[in-house]
Amino acid sequence: METKNIILKLRMQKGLSQDELAEKIMVTRQAVSRWENGETVPNTETLKLLSKEFDVSINTLLGEPRKLICQCCGMPIEDDSILGRDKDGTLNEEYCKWCYADGTYTYSNMDDLID
């Protein structure tokens, strides 16, 4: 799915108007409209805000252009529910939730992974 369709779908699922979404992420309604029409794509900082607002990964917002792999255990991360989270609750695309949770690595000793 393309970014324009993903943003529209997520906005509609949350029951937000373009104006409401724009206000939440500090952009204009016209910017939201251009994304949803496929005229432009949000910049990196805006993608971070959208990711947090919709509780999805940036990878998901971009239509999953790359396969995510946990950088700790090597497990494929096939959907956002498996992603670890930082202390502020945002998704961390580098680690699975079993290796990294609430901004903390869950393994006290990396040797545990080798056994």
Rank of each mutant, 00 (worst) to 15 (best):
E39P: 09
L62R: 01
M110G: 06
R66V: 13
R85M: 11
G103C: 01
Y105F: 15
I58K: 00
T44R: 02
N43F: 06
C73P: 08
K67C: 08
T44C: 03
L68M: 03
L62T: 01
K52L: 09
D79W: 14
P65E: 00
V56G: 00
T90K: 07
N59L: 04
N92E: 15
L47I: 06
W98T: 10
T28V: 05
L68F: 03
G74E: 08
E23R: 05
E45Q: 10
T40V: 08
S33W: 09
Q71A: 06
I58M: 06
R66H: 07
M75E: 14
T46G: 03
C73W: 09
S51L: 00
E53A: 03
T104H: 10
D55T: 07
E94V: 07
L47F: 13
C96Q: 01
E23S: 08
N92W: 14
C73G: 05
N109L: 06
G74F: 08
L47K: 00
S57Y: 09
C96K: 00
C72V: 05
Y105W: 14
G38M: 02
L62A: 04
K87N: 13
S81K: 11
S108E: 15
C72M: 08
V32N: 01
G74Y: 06
W35R: 01
W35Q: 06
G89M: 05
K24L: 13
S57I: 05
L91G: 15
P65H: 01
G84Y: 07
A101N: 07
Y107W: 15
L49R: 03
D80L: 14
M110N: 08
K48P: 09
L50I: 11
E53R: 02
D86N: 15
D88Q: 12
R66K: 08
T106Q: 09
G84C: 04
T106P: 11
E64P: 04
T44Q: 08
M110R: 02
L49Q: 04
N59V: 09
E23W: 09
K48I: 14
D111F: 11
